[in-house]
């Protein structure tokens, strides 16, 4: 019996198993257990949630391996961790630690302003962020086995997440409306390989699972992302920066499952306490926006 590990099907397949679920940012094993208990399908292990990274400034890097390993030991669900854009050695370290997914993330300070990580070269699967279809297809051609639209992390403001998921899906619909001979020019315009572009035009969806991230702070935010076509959601600062993280986490899980049932979303939204405070986008100078990182 020939056994093959770390194949494209297993990389992409884990993301398929996470669909319809909520992936939560956690900074301690204790938070990871709260997330698992609330019904998270995976946790993102990091040192500081994006809201704190934003507040602290400075260079944001991969987390301390001790913290990541501690979280891996604390829960039975998959554990993801972030590497800087283009920092393939951080990704090698995360692979050596045995994390289940690496997030090549704009939330950390980029290490390379031209190249992303060659993700085909790794056994561990990668998730990457995108603001539009071209960016998503470039990441997939580099080997990303899962996508997430970026939003603006650490703001508790859903507006950018909405912009990005709409943009990706509008891009897909546009490809679907094209004649086959127009897809070559479309690939050039999207700055993405023709084969991936043609596959998207044919299937009407990305070839990998696509979640929404960045700014989700309430059950309604999660359901909005799902109704706009997300296959699941990442919630970063929105849970552990809220008044009652366990209840908020649970409510967001329920709203993600029942995203098209307003009566249930109303029910689970009752008495959650204050969500994270949030920041208006106009309050963030252009140079401090995270979503624009990535090329």
């Amino acid at each position: 019996m020939a056994v093959e590990t770390s194949t494209w099907a297993t990389k992409k397949g884990l993301a398929q198993m996470l669909k319809g679920g909520v992936i939560m940012d956690v900074v301690t094993p204790e938070q990871a257990r709260i997330a698992e208990e609330a019904g998270a399908v995976a946790v993102m292990a990091l040192e500081r949630v994006p809201a704190d990274i934003r507040a602290d400034g400075g260079v944001a890097r991969m987390s301390d391996p001790v913290m990541i390993v501690g979280i891996m030991a604390a829960v039975s669900i998959p554990v993801m961790a972030k590497a800087r854009i283009g920092h393939f050695v951080e990704a090698q370290v995360l692979e050596a630690l045995g994390v289940d997914y690496v997030d090549e993330s704009e939330v950390l300070t980029p290490a390379d302003e031209e190249n992303h990580i060659d993700k085909h070269a790794f056994k561990v699967p990668f998730v990457c962020g995108a603001r539009d279809l071209g960016e998503a297809l470039r990441r997939i051609s580099e080997g990303a086995a899962m996508m997430r639209t970026k939003g603006e992390a650490g703001t508790g403001n859903i507006v950018e997440a909405v912009r990005h998921i709409r943009s990706v899906n509008a891009g897909i619909r546009r490809l679907q409306s094209m004649r086959e001979d127009e897809l070559y020019a479309a690939a050039k315009e999207l700055r993405a390989p023709y084969d991936v572009v043609a596959a998207v035009a044919r299937d009407g969806k990305l070839p990998v699972v696509n979640f929404v991230a960045g700014g989700i702070a309430t059950p309604s935010d999660a359901a909005l992302a799902m109704q706009l076509g997300a296959e699941g959601v990442f919630v970063g600062s929105g849970i552990f920066k809220s008044d009652d993280p366990a209840r908020m986490a649970n409510a967001i899980v329920q709203a993600t499952t029942h995203f098209d049932d307003a009566a249930i979303i109303a029910e689970v939204s009752k008495g959650l306490g204050a969500p994270m405070r949030g920041i208006g986008l106009e309050a963030i100078p252009e140079g401090e926006r995270l979503a624009v990182r990535g090329w």
Binding site: A2, T10, L14, V124
Partner: peptide, 16 residues
């Protein structure tokens, strides 16, 4: 037994 083969890096394909 859950996760009986290990973590994601141990996920595999095989004909059975």
């Amino acid at each position: 037994r859950r996760n009986a083969f290990g973590r994601q890096l141990d996920s595999f394909e095989a004909d059975i």
